[in-house]
Design a protein around this nucleic acid. Structure first.
Length: 461
RNA sequence: GGCGCGAUAGCAAAGCGGUUAUGCUCCGGAUUGCAAAUCCGUUCAGCCCGGUUCGACUCCGGGUCGCGCCUCCA
């Protein structure tokens, strides 16, 4: 039994898919006019972990994550650079895929792009007009008329009158109400545009997700996810659009990740306090970044800091140290580690609690690795198997430890290992002065030695 | 101002109406030529005020503080 917190009902609910054994899930991807930042990574990793767990529990998950590649910000950025808008989006889509791969995020089943679904978008807008939820204005824009959709505000818990009080109208708009939002935007001179029954133009923000999700998953589907700042207006508007067009329930379970913060403030484009994924990956291994992101439950806010990443690294060090020198074996594992791990994940994907179980496993490995290789081997196999469900702990321990936080620069592995042999001889002869000289020399070169029961290992600092 | 979320030990972060979260750090011990890693033990909690209860960190009410959304943002 899997329980999921539903933003719509604000409760944890037992998850029951529409179709037994299948999960239809749509997650809002990014608008591609810049590199992914850590906030994008949070959503990417959170829904990656969610997908992995649902699949592990036997669900056939159809995971759709869109790319919004038509938007004002894209056009503006492309104009600044003097390049076609699709050259810009292509560049950032490629960059996004690189970042995802680095973070161990599995590809979604499909990655629809707004520009490839213009026909469906136009069809949905036409249907909304036909159903009386939308109107074409004099200026060539088409608007959604919120007053016609009574449940508006159900997701964000906002009252339409409050929204009207705070709303403002841009010059040149001809809305019936200030809260009405744009479905189709008349083309400006020189901008990329598409033909439509309302003249040349392009989709407004929001409609592309309604069209693509409905197109890929049907009128009603199980899970819709995204970042915390999409709840309003984006997701609220999606509900209004899709339910207005189809007359059916849009989504059963809404899931929203928590915000990443920097110094207690949300990391966001508008505040300019964001760190891109690639920027962070220059300083920390990707697995550390991923571990940092899953160290807190996906709905909670987390503060990004160097300390937090250091802590994530310390945790991974502990796991890989435990696995080091143990030969993986298949065998029965004593204890209820897996059971408790899965129970934690079943409970709204509680990764911190699941990770706590992994730490217990690591301690047990450390306890018995010297005395019982068979038991230790089975425990390591279990640790890796459970780690895989979170997308971590899949590296070879020696590789992980040798890499340290260094960049692989400096002395070559062969040179280091030759010195370790020399030092071993010195130690055998109780020549500790020579032994320490080698240790100090290597330390100076950024290499630390650890004398373990199984022999001496090294790592870059 | 409206709506929503949160407040746990030095730090991070969970569960739970009564019994050790977990990781890092501190302290003591074991192990170690040194160091690292590791093991054992220990200290340190639950914003404030009420209520419910035999018993509350956990439930309820009120407050305080913090954060998010209300404008583009994952």
């Amino acid at each position: 039994m899997i329980q999921i917190y539903n933003s719509l009902t604000q409760k944890k609910e037992v998850f029951v898919p529409l179709e037994e054994g299948k999960v239809k899930m749509y997650v809002c991807g990014m608008t591609v006019y810049d590199y992914c930042h850590l906030g994008h990574a949070r959503v990417l990793v959170a829904f990656d972990v969610i997908t992995r767990h649902l699949r592990h529990r036997g669900y056939d998950v159809n995971y759709i994550r869109n790319i919004t590649d038509v938007d004002d910000k894209i056009f503006n950025r492309a104009a600044e650079r003097g390049i076609p808008f699709d050259a810009l989006t292509e560049q950032f889509i490629n960059a996004m895929h690189e970042d995802e791969r680095a973070l161990g995020v599995l590809a979604p089943n499909a990655e629809p792009r707004a520009t490839q679904h213009i026909a469906e978008i136009i069809a949905m807008i036409a249907r909304l007009i036909q159903n009386g939820y939308a109107y074409a204005a004099e200026n060539g824009d088409v608007y959604y008329e919120i007053a016609k959709y009574a449940p508006y505000g159900q997701l964000s818990k906002k009252k339409v009158e409050d929204l009207i009080a705070g709303a403002r109208v841009e010059i040149g708009e001809s809305k019936r109400s200030p809260v009405d939002f744009t479905l189709w935007k008349a083309a400006k001179e020189g901008e990329a545009c598409w033909d439509s029954p309302w003249g040349k133009g392009r989709p407004g923000w929001h409609i592309e997700c309604s069209a693509m999700s409905t197109c890929c998953l049907g009128n009603t589907f199980d899970i819709h996810g995204g970042g915390p700042d999409l709840k309003f207006p984006h997701h609220e508007n999606e509900i209004a659009q899709s339910e207005g067009a189809t007359g059916q329930k849009y989504v059963n379970t809404w899931m929203h990740a928590g915000a990443i913060r920097v110094n207690k403030e949300k990391m966001s484009k508008s505040l300019g306090n964001f760190f891109t994924i690639r920027e962070i990956l220059e300083k920390y291994p990707a697995e550390v970044v991923r571990f940092f992101l899953i160290s807190s439950q996906y709905r909670s806010q987390v503060d990004y800091s160097e300390d937090a990443l250091q802590e994530a690294k310390a945790s991974l060090d502990r796991f890989y140290n435990a696995m080091l020198g143990v030969e993986v074996m298949s065998g029965e594992v004593e204890g209820d580690y897996r059971e408790r791990f899965l129970a934690a994940m079943d409970d709204d994907f509680n990764t911190p609690e699941a990770i706590a179980v992994l730490f217990e496993l690591a301690r047990e490995i450390n306890r018995c690795k010297a005395s019982d290789k068979v038991v230790a081997g089975a425990l390591v196999a279990e640790l890796r198997a459970l780690g895989d469900m979170l997308g971590v702990l899949q590296q070879d321990p020696t590789t992980y430890i040798q890499a340290g936080s260094g960049k692989g620069e400096g002395l070559q592995a062969e040179e280091i290992e030759a010195l370790i042999v020399q030092r071993k001889d010195a130690r055998a002869n109780k020549n500790f002065a020579e032994s320490d000289r080698i240790r100090d020399y290597l330390k100076q070169e950024g290499i630390e030695l650890d004398d373990r029961k199984e022999g001496t290992t090294w790592r870059r600092v």
